[in-house]
Design a protein around this nucleic acid. Structure first.
Length: 955
RNA sequence: GCGGGAGUCGCCCAGCCUGGUCAAAGGCGUAGGGCUUAGGACCCUAUAUCUCAGGAUUUCGUGGGUUCAAAUCCCACCUCCCGCACCA
C-alpha cells in the first residue's frame, strides 16, 4: 500500500527548495496562467479543486514545454457573505455553528473570533492556501495578496477612476431588496432560508385622475389601457389619501408603506372608504375618457396599489367579475361591454370569454381563473397583435408593442415603475419582511453601451475559448448585458474614490486584477509601499501613459524601480489563459473581457479562456444540506492528492459535470500503484536489435505522444489522461503477449523508454507520484524540470504497424471461426495469397480508394483501364470483397499500406505467428502460399486467399 | 420569453468536435464456470438478433437530407435538464 501523503510531502519539499515555481521575467517565452481567486468564507471542497487542478496541469504542461510560466494566486475578501456569517455566529445560530464544527472542523477557539468578518476570511484563507499547497499546485506564492490590502485598494481606485474617465460609468436609480429594520440591502445570504429576493421590474403604475386626486393602478400589461372599461375597488377596504411628492394619491395603506422606499416624499393625510369611490368615475389621462369605478371582492389591498383596472376582453378575472355584476343586474355594469384590443389566433373576439367558457369558470372566486389568466397572458404575449383601438400602436405584436406603449406613457408622465418582490414574502434574517427599495444615485458600469460591446466582441473573435462551443454563450451574454451596479453600501472592499459613501462592488473589483500580480511581488518584498502606487504610476506602468519622470515624482519611487516594474508587466501581460468555472461565464468572465478592452490596449487583451463544469458527489450535487461536501484537505489526507487530482480530471471532459466517487479514486490508486511498481522494476538497459513487435510498440508510443500532446493543448485532459493510463494499456498487453509467446526476456530497456515518456506526460496530472516514478526509473533530476516528450515521426514504422495489424486480424479471424464452429482445433492451416495479379490489383485498388473512391463500378473501370490490372474483370468477386476489406480500414492504415512497398506475408506469418498462435490456440499453425504445388488443402480453401486476408483451414 | 445543454445496446455512461479500425469502450446488473465447507471477495466467459467458416440483419430520441459511407455532418420535430444579474 502506498503512503501517498509521505510521497507528496517528500516531493513538495524538493519543489519548494528548488523554487521552480517562483517566476521572474527572463529571455524565454512566457505563459501567464490565472484562475479566479477564491472567496474565503468556507474551506475549499473537491468542487473548487477542479478549476485549480486544471489550471495547474496547464501550467505544468507549459513549463515542460519550455515556457517561463507564471501561475499566481490571490484571495478575494471583497463582499458581504462574511458579514452575514459573522452576524449569525454572534447570535449563536445553531445551523451555522454546527456546519463550522461538524463539516469544516474549525477549532472552537477560532470560531470564537468569527464574530469579526475579517477573522473568518483570514481563517479560511489560510485553510484554502494550505489545501492548494497540499494539492501540489505550482503557484508562485510570493505574489499572493488579498483584495483588502492597501496596495490592491490603490490598484482598484486607479481601475475605477480610469473606467469613469473613459466614460464607462454612469449614474442612475436602481431597485434592490431591502430590509426596513436593518436599513440594508438584502441578498440571498441575508434572508431566512437563503432565498434570493427577486425583483420584478416589469411591473408598472398607471395614473388616473379622480377629481383633485391621482388614482394610481399597477399593471404588468401597459398596452391594455386601450381596453379599459372600468376600475375595480374593494368595497370592504378603507383607502388612504396620501401625498406623494407634489400629488395626492388614493391607495391602500399597504401600498403607502411600500412607496416610502421609492425615494418619494410620502405622508398619509386621510381615509376614504372604498364604498365612497364606487359608482363614481375616474378619468384616464391618455384619452380623457370617463372610467366608472365598480366593486369587486377579488381586489386585494396588499397587491399593487389596492386598485385594479378592468380589461374584461383580455383578463379572465375582470371578465368574470363583470359577468357576476351583470348577473345581479348592476346598473352601470349592465351597460359595459368588453373592448377587445388584441387579436390572437385561436381565439374569438373576446378571448377572456373564450377561455372562461373553455375551462368552465363559475364565478370570480373560482380558482380556475389563475390558470386561465396564466394561459391567456402567455398566449397573447407570444402570438397576439394589437388592433386598431390602440391607435398609433395598431398592428404591433404584443411583445414589442407593450414596451412601446410603456415608453409613450412614461414620456407623458402617465406611468411610473413600480418594482415588486416577485417571491414575496421574503424575510430578512432579522425577521423583518423585505421590501423593494429604489436606490437613487447608484453607480453603474454601462455594459449596455453598444460601442463597448463591440470591443468585447472583437476580443472574443480573436480569443481562444475552451471548450470552443461555449463561445456562442459568451457572445449571447455580451448581447443581453446592460448596466450593472458597480457600487454598494456595505461589505468589505475599496471605497469609490469620488463618492466615499459607496464601496466598489465585489465583481467589479475582480476583473483586471491579474495585472496586479506583476506588482504585488514588489509590494510584498518591500520594494514599494502602497502609498507609492499613485495614479500616474499605474498610468505609466500599465498603460504606458505619461512619462517616467511624472510617475517618479508622484510616486516617490526611483525611475529604475518603476521601469523594472513596467517591464515585468509588459513581459507577463497579456493573460495567456484564464481558468474558471462555468457558473462565472455570465458574470465574472464576461466582465473580465469587458473591463480589459475598456482599459488596456489591444495587445494586452486576454488570449484564452478555459471554462470547466462543476463536480458532483456520487452523482448528486454537493450541498451543505445534503452533508455530502468533502473538504479538499480531508480528501487529501484520506486518499492522497494525486488520486484526487486524477479522479477529478478523469471523470469528465471540461464543460461537463465531473462525478467524484470512491470507486474511481481507488481505481486510480491501484493504477498508479501498479505503474509505480513497474517503474521500479525496469532497468535502463541498452536496447538490442529491435524485433517486429518492438518497432510496433515504439511506433504506438509515438502515436500516443502526439495524441496526448494535442489533447492537452486543447485542455481535453480526460482524453489525455485516458490515453496515457488506459488506452495505451491494451497496446502494452498485446506487446506483452507477443513477448511472452516468444519467450523473450530482454525488453526491459524498451519498456523503460516507453514508461519514461508515460511518466513525463503523467507528471502535470499527478506531479508527486510521477516524481517518485521518475526517480525509480533512475533519474536524478526532477521530472517537473524535464522536457515534455516530443513526437518524432522517424520513430514511426509504418510497416510494423501494418504488419501487427495484419497479425492481429488474422488471429481474430481464426478465433472468430472457432467461436462460431465451437470446434477444438487439431490443425490450423493458413494459405497466403501469392498471386501477383491479385497483389497488383490490390495495390491499385488501394491507391484508388485512398483517393476517396469506394464505388465498385468506378473502381472496376479504373482497374480495367490499366492493362496491368485488366484481369480484374475476371474476378469481380475478389474485387468486391477487397473493397469491403479496405472499406472498413481507417484512412491511416490504408495510407501506411500504400507507403510500405513490398511486404512478404508468408515470411512474416511464418516467423511471427508461430509463437503467438501456439500460445493462443494450443496448436502449431502451418502457413502455405496458395500457389504452392505441394500444399495440404483438402477443402480447397486456398483459392479464397486475398492479400492481407489469408484463407484459413481449421480441423 | 431569452439563452445554453442533453436523449446511445437492462441500468449508468464513453464515442460525436476531426464521418470509415463502431454491433459501438468502461462500470453495474444478469447467466455460466473457477476458487471456497458456505458466504463474501477475487478470476474467467457470455450478454441486439440470426448463424456449426471468418458471415448476415436491424440498431445510437423521431422524421428527413448530404455522402460511396452517418451514433458522428445538415434541417425539422419531440422529450428532459440548467442559467437569467447587482450575488460570490
Amino acid at each position: 500500500m502506498i503512503n501517498w501523503n509521505e510521497i507528496e510531502t517528500k516531493w513538495r519539499n524538493k519543489w519548494s527548495e528548488s523554487k521552480d515555481f517562483e517566476t521572474n521575467p527572463n529571455d524565454k517565452p512566457k505563459k501567464f496562467i490565472t484562475v479566479a481567486y477564491p472567496y474565503p468564507n468556507s474551506p475549499q471542497h473537491i468542487g473548487h479543486g477542479r478549476t485549480y487542478t486544471l489550471a495547474d496541469v496547464h501550467a505544468r504542461f507549459y513549463r515542460m514545454q519550455g515556457y517561463n510560466v507564471l501561475f499566481p494566486m490571490g484571495f478575494h475578501y471583497t463582499g458581504t457573505p462574511v458579514l452575514g456569517m459573522a452576524k449569525r455566529i454572534e447570535k449563536g445560530e445553531k445551523e451555522i455553528l454546527d456546519g463550522l464544527r461538524n463539516i469544516y472542523h474549525v477549532p472552537e477557539e477560532d470560531i470564537k473570533t468569527f464574530v469579526e468578518p475579517i477573522k473568518i476570511a483570514d481563517y479560511f484563507h489560510e485553510e484554502i492556501k494550505s489545501g492548494m499547497i497540499e494539492m501540489g499546485y505550482s503557484i508562485d506564492w510570493r505574489r499572493e495578496f488579498t483584495t483588502i490590502v492597501p496596495g490592491y485598494q490603490k490598484f482598484i481606485e486607479w481601475q475605477i477612476t480610469t473606467l469613469k474617465e473613459n466614460g464607462r460609468i454612469i449614474q442612475g436609480s436602481h431597485p434592490v431588496g431591502w430590509c426596513p429594520k436593518d436599513q440594508n440591502p438584502v441578498s440571498q445570504h441575508d434572508t431566512m432560508g437563503d432565498v434570493e429576493p427577486k425583483i420584478d421590474d416589469k411591473n408598472f403604475l398607471v395614473k388616473f385622475k379622480f377629481g383633485e386626486f391621482v388614482f394610481p393602478i399597477t399593471t404588468l400589461r401597459p398596452e391594455t389601457i386601450f381596453g379599459i372599461t372600468n376600475l375595480w375597488v374593494n368595497p370592504n377596504t378603507v383607502y388612504k389619501k396620501v401625498t406623494v411628492d407634489h400629488e395626492t394619491w388614493i391607495i391602500s395603506e399597504e401600498c403607502a408603506h411600500k412607496i416610502e422606499f421609492f425615494e418619494k416624499d410620502v405622508s398619509i393625510i386621510g381615509d376614504i372608504p372604498g364604498t365612497e369611490l364606487i359608482g363614481k368615475s375616474a378619468v384616464s389621462l391618455h384619452n380623457n375618457a370617463e372610467i366608472p369605478i365598480l366593486p369587486a371582492d377579488f381586489v386585494e389591498p396588499s397587491m399593487g396599489t389596492g386598485l385594479v383596472m378592468s380589461v374584461p376582453a383580455h383578463a379572465p378575472k375582470d371578465y368574470q367579475a363583470l359577468m357576476d355584476l351583470k348577473a345581479k343586474n348592476h346598473e352601470i355594469a349592465s351597460k359595459i361591454e368588453p373592448i377587445p384590443i388584441i387579436v390572437t389566433e385561436g381565439y374569438g373576439a373576446i378571448p377572456a370569454k373564450d377561455i372562461c367558457e373553455k375551462l368552465g369558470v363559475s364565478d370570480q372566486a373560482d380558482s380556475k381563473l389563475e390558470e386561465a389568466t396564466k394561459e391567456l397572458y402567455l398566449k397573447e404575449f407570444t402570438d397576439g397583435k394589437l388592433n386598431e383601438k390602440c391607435g398609433q400602436f395598431n398592428n404591433e405584436k404584443v411583445q414589442f408593442g407593450r414596451d412601446k406603449v410603456r415608453v409613450w406613457l412614461q414620456e407623458n408622465k402617465h406611468l411610473e415603475k413600480f418594482p415588486v418582490l416577485e417571491n414575496s414574502p421574503v424575510r430578512c434574517r432579522c425577521g423583518a419582511e423585505c421590501v423593494v427599495k429604489i436606490l437613487n444615485n447608484q453607480w453603474f458600469l454601462n455594459y449596455g453601451d453598444e460601442s463597448w460591446k463591440e470591443l468585447a466582441r472583437n476580443c472574443f473573435d480573436e480569443m481562444n475559448i475552451l471548450p470552443s462551443n461555449i463561445k456562442t454563450e459568451f457572445i449571447e451574454v455580451i448581447d443581453w448585458l446592460h448596466e450593472r451596479a458597480c457600487a454598494r453600501q456595505q461589505g468589505l472592499g475599496t471605497k469609490l474614490p469620488w463618492d466615499k459613501d459607496w464601496i466598489v462592488e465585489s465583481l467589479s473589483d475582480s476583473v483586471i486584477y491579474m495585472a496586479y500580480y506583476t506588482i504585488s511581488r514588489f509590494v510584498n518584498d518591500g520594494t514599494v509601499q502602497p502609498e507609492n502606487l499613485t495614479r500616474e504610476f499605474f498610468d505609466y506602468v500599465l498603460l504606458d501613459k505619461g512619462d517616467v519622470a511624472l510617475a517618479a515624482s508622484t510616486s516617490k519611487l526611483s525611475e529604475d524601480v518603476i521601469n523594472t516594474m513596467k517591464k515585468e508587466f509588459q513581459y507577463f501581460y497579456p493573460v495567456d489563459s484564464r481558468h474558471s468555472g462555468r457558473d462565472l461565464v455570465q458574470n465574472h468572465l464576461s466582465f473580465f473581457v469587458l473591463n480589459h478592452v475598456a482599459i488596456f490596449e489591444k495587445k494586452y487583451w486576454p488570449q484564452e479562456i478555459v471554462v470547466n463544469g462543476s463536480v458532483m458527489m456520487d452523482g448528486a450535487k454537493m450541498s451543505k444540506s445534503m452533508g455530502n461536501i468533502i473538504p479538499l484537505r480531508t480528501a487529501i489526507k484520506d486518499h492522497g492528492a494525486d488520486p484526487i487530482r486524477l479522479a477529478i480530471i478523469s471523470s469528465a471532459e471540461l464543460l461537463q459535470d465531473a462525478d467524484f466517487n470512491m470507486e474511481s479514486v481507488s481505481g486510480i490508486q491501484s493504477k498508479l500503484a501498479s505503474l509505480l511498481d513497474e517503474c521500479s522494476r525496469l532497468k535502463n538497459e541498452p536496447v538490442s536489435e529491435l524485433q517486429a513487435e518492438d518497432r510496433w510498440i515504439l511506433s504506438k508510443t509515438q502515436r500516443m505522444i502526439s495524441q496526448v500532446t494535442e489533447a492537452v493543448e486543447k485542455m481535453r485532459l480526460r482524453e489525455a489522461l485516458h490515453d496515457i493510463l488506459f488506452s495505451f494499456e491494451s497496446d502494452l498487453s498485446w506487446y506483452a503477449k507477443r513477448v511472452e509467446a516468444k519467450e523473450r526476456d530482454n525488453v526491459s530497456g524498451i519498456l523503460h523508454q516507453i514508461n519514461s515518456a508515460r511518466v513525463a506526460m503523467l507528471s502535470p496530472f499527478a506531479p508527486h507520484i510521477a516524481e517518485e516514478m521518475w526517480e525509480k526509473l533512475g533519474n536524478n533530476e526532477l521530472v517537473s524540470k524535464s522536457s515534455w516528450p516530443a513526437y518524432s515521426k522517424e520513430d514511426v514504422d509504418a510497416t510494423s504497424i501494418q504488419s501487427e495489424n495484419f497479425l492481429k486480424s488474422t488471429i481474430d479471424d481464426i478465433a472468430n471461426i472457432l467461436k462460431v464452429t465451437k470446434i477444438t482445433p487439431k490443425k490450423i492451416v493458413l494459405y497466403v495469397n501469392s498471386d501477383s495479379a491479385k497483389s497488383k490489383i490490390y495495390r491499385k485498388m488501394l491507391s484508388i480508394m485512398v483517393g476517396g473512391q469506394n464505388n465498385m463500378g468506378v473502381v472496376m473501370k479504373e482497374l480495367i483501364a490499366d492493362p496491368e490490372t485488366a484481369d480484374a474483370k475476371k474476378m469481380p468477386d475478389f474485387v468486391q470483397k477487397t473493397i469491403k476489406d479496405l472499406h472498413s480500414e481507417s484512412e491511416e492504415i490504408k495510407q501506411m499500406k500504400l507507403e510500405s512497398e513490398s511486404f512478404d506475408e508468408k515470411e512474416f506469418l511464418k516467423s511471427e505467428l508461430f509463437s503467438i498462435g501456439k500460445k493462443e490456440f494450443g496448436v502449431e499453425i502451418q502457413v502455405y502460399s496458395e500457389s504452392n504445388s505441394d500444399i495440404y488443402d483438402p477443402k480447397g480453401k486456398a483459392r479464397h486467399a486475398r492479400p492481407f486476408k489469408p484463407a484459413i483451414l481449421i480441423e
